[in-house]
Design a protein around this nucleic acid. Sequence first.
DNA 1: CAGTGGTCTAGACCACATC
DNA 2: ATGTGGTCTAGACCACTGT
Lengths: 265, 265
Amino acid sequence: MSSPKHALLAETLRDRIEHDVYEGGRIPSEATLADEFQVSRTTVRAALNALQNEGLLRSQSGVGYFVRRFQHFVYRPQDDFRRTKDIADVKSLTGAEDPDPDPFIKAAGARKAEYRFEVTMVPATGDVLRRLRVPEGEFVVLRKRWRLLDGVPYQLYDSYYPRDVVEGTEVMEPRDIPRGVYQVLAERGHAQVRALDEIWVRMPRQSEVDRLKILPGTPVAEHVITGFTAEDRPVRMARVVLPGDRNVITFERTHPDHESETQSD
Amino acid sequence: MSSPKHALLAETLRDRIEHDVYEGGRIPSEATLADEFQVSRTTVRAALNALQNEGLLRSQSGVGYFVRRFQHFVYRPQDDFRRTKDIADVKSLTGAEDPDPDPFIKAAGARKAEYRFEVTMVPATGDVLRRLRVPEGEFVVLRKRWRLLDGVPYQLYDSYYPRDVVEGTEVMEPRDIPRGVYQVLAERGHAQVRALDEIWVRMPRQSEVDRLKILPGTPVAEHVITGFTAEDRPVRMARVVLPGDRNVITFERTHPDHESETQSD
DNA sequence: CAGTGGTCTAGACCACATC
DNA sequence: ATGTGGTCTAGACCACTGT
């Protein structure tokens, strides 16, 4: 009926962490805990390892274990749609000479927002192929974007476009598009009028751990946006990978009945 | 420059799993791997433990390690809004005598959907208090719901209502409301016309591990929905906890410019 | 019964951070 | 130099699953 020692220890530590027992979020050393609970260091490590995987602690080699603190960024996928309309507002609000209207930068607030870009042509595979309804092996344009706040990576934002839709436009260049991508798509006769959002949750791959500089035990959300024209052709797919310790995804919506009511008024 | 043995072993195993090297998803025993890679059993366990925490493997005591397989449920928060309109459709489609129009049941398809309910009054605390804008300590109505598919818990769905809004209605009873909650709210003069969705990602608490029967290394999404009336009063807050290995959250939206275009047509 | 994973120990050596 | 976490070993005993 009784739990193993490492589980009991983990339970005790979870409790202490929740009640802020440890000054400055600093957990006692492995040796100290082993001594206090009369168990081997290996058992202490098993407990601490579990807490790390739950995202409660982080360890720093040669220093110690610390309680993790979080600061979330509020990510609003709907803002991307609204971009072009807001350019004037941003200019008037910030007084910036050359305001960057990217919604990520607008939402950054006091934190320093930063980008990295990379544009390539890749053969469509897997879910990209399926979502963009492109023949196997056909090349699509991939815009890879890193979104950083105060030097910390907050999001990986990769967007895919069918080749014919964006070829010869500034979408092919690795820099921000002040007009907004939707403007460019519209000018080419592929205005995006509808989007489907899919969100799921998983543990990160090794490549994402490296790109996002996340600690072990940090889950990620994968957010895939597929954009459609009025003719229901998919013209854009974006895959956003968001570390769970740094992001909140938000949506706003109105009741469909209410919409029709107001329309029938 | 070289990685520790357990990391190299984990890397090798990740690769083998991805390339489906192991028949039937069955991983060799710890002893076998220790022998093959010439390391101690402890080192093998460190590698396998890491893969479990990444959600790639599950272990079964006394049996062995297996590759994990996933079957996702498509969760559409917007369906909840549409509920009352669809009752007739469900009846005509399924031919059921007493069709249950809950969107979760509709979306279950061939899988057997199941519920558990619990209704209580609790003092508002933390984010519930903040989101429902209720004075500290004031009691709110809590509807706790478990949503199961084929006996497996897929979602914890807890919804909170200000006491005055639902007192004396069937919302206080621990069973499904065929009319839909939105209908009840509307009849009480608190029609919900707008909702805010917030989604984030984290590792589960112990209580959630128990309630959802999830394996170690499974992250969860927390989805909080706050519903507002036309007067901007929050009348409903729901907290949905979704195990990452079983759910995809989806939204559909239309381009705001497009909406205004069609309205101005 | 044999084989599997789960628990636990004592002890060793290393790299790294801090003083 | 000291203390910290990171790695790794060999070996022991247990509980559980399958035949």
